[in-house]
């Protein structure tokens, strides 16, 4: 993943704008102002942040409502752009809870990090986090890069994992953002690591959004980089190829918390993440993309149906 959510603002502009309107009440608070005075009783006010990426905002809203339910005061600082923008704020202790993607965060903190299994990435991340920050247990849900093809293409060439792309006898045109060509998991890696012949590259700069999906469905491109939690994969009959060799960094949703998040609050977040499976995340995203529901509505319904609200 280039940085989780990078450029997706463009692709999902409408959704994000919708979320922004829905959350405008909260957004009026200065996201960068220091908060969390302890005056209002025993429990601290916690600042929950999110990326400018609709799916991330939904997860942040779930965290926020779960914490509120447990008696914490919560200030929401949602839609704070990309990792380059918000990471310094987290490091400075100005945000207390942030739903992150462990592989992408690890790569942001350590450019030379090696990939690997989810567990390995999580372990490596814990060693790289700045002092004062903690990575809680990752959810099973991940939103990461994938090499995705249509179901018809997968069936025709019996494709299951990335390596099986070698079976393909027709030309493979890869579509995606320009920078995909320069990524360590890009078309060049497919050629050098797996010996897959890539016939060309077509730039579609919406980060796996609707244009990319359409190009794939229309067979203008055969292989695209689409995030695994994208509901378009299901609704357009696409197949994200398995990645047994860890070409992509696993990107499980992992709350990054500050010292102000005490053990009880951590338990609340752990309880949420324990329920957040891959299918749950996709269906949460689908409620936003396909059903156009607002993040607070989606969050409340999900928490209620999972018995996480008292």
């Amino acid at each position: 993943m280039f940085t989780a959510g990078k450029g997706r603002l463009v692709a999902l502009g409408a959704v994000v704008v919708g979320a922004a309107i829905a959350l405008s009440g909260c957004a009026s608070a200065d996201p960068l102002s220091s908060g969390g005075d302890n005056a209002s009783g025993s429990k601290a006010t916690l600042i929950v942040g999110s990326q400018a990426y609709y799916s991330n905002t939904i997860v942040a809203e779930i965290y926020a409502e779960a914490l509120e339910n447990a008696g914490y005061k919560v200030t929401r600082s949602f839609n704070i752009g990309q990792r380059e923008v918000y990471l310094p704020q987290i490091e400075a202790g100005k945000i207390d809870v942030f739903p992150e993607y462990d592989g992408s965060l690890l790569q942001a903190l350590d450019k030379t990090a090696a990939g690997g299994t989810s567990d390995a990435v999580y372990a490596a991340l814990k060693g790289k986090l700045p002092a004062g920050l903690t990575a809680l247990t990752p959810a099973a849900a991940a939103d990461q890069n994938s090499w995705t093809v249509t179901q018809a293409f997968a069936t025709k060439y019996n494709l299951t994992d990335i390596a099986s792309l070698k079976n393909v006898t027709e030309k493979i045109i890869v579509g995606g953002n320009s920078e995909l060509q320069t990524r360590p998991y890009g078309p060049k890696a497919l050629e050098s690591k797996y010996g897959i012949k890539i016939a060309g590259f077509k730039a579609v700069q919406d980060s796996g959004g609707p244009l990319t999906v359409k190009a794939l469905v229309d067979n203008q491109i055969q292989l695209a980089n689409i995030y695994t939690a994208d509901p378009n994969i299901k609704s357009n009959n696409l197949v994200a190829l398995q990645d047994p060799d860890g070409l992509f960094f696993p990107d499980n949703i992992t709350p990054i918390v500050s010292k102000k998040v005490d053990a009880a609050a951590q338990k609340v977040l752990d309880a949420v993440d324990a329920k957040l499976s891959q299918d749950e995340l996709v269906s949460l995203n689908s409620e936003s993309v396909n059903d156009k529901k607002s993040a607070p509505d989606i969050a409340k319904a999900w928490l209620t149906s999972n018995g996480l609200l008292k």
Partner: peptide, 19 residues
């Protein structure tokens, strides 16, 4: 034009911006 795969000099702008 390069946003939708039609090429042109936008390639350098998009790639430069994103990397």
């Amino acid at each position: 034009a390069d946003y939708v795969g039609a090429g042109g000099l936008g390639h350098f702008l998009f790639l430069g911006l994103q990397t």
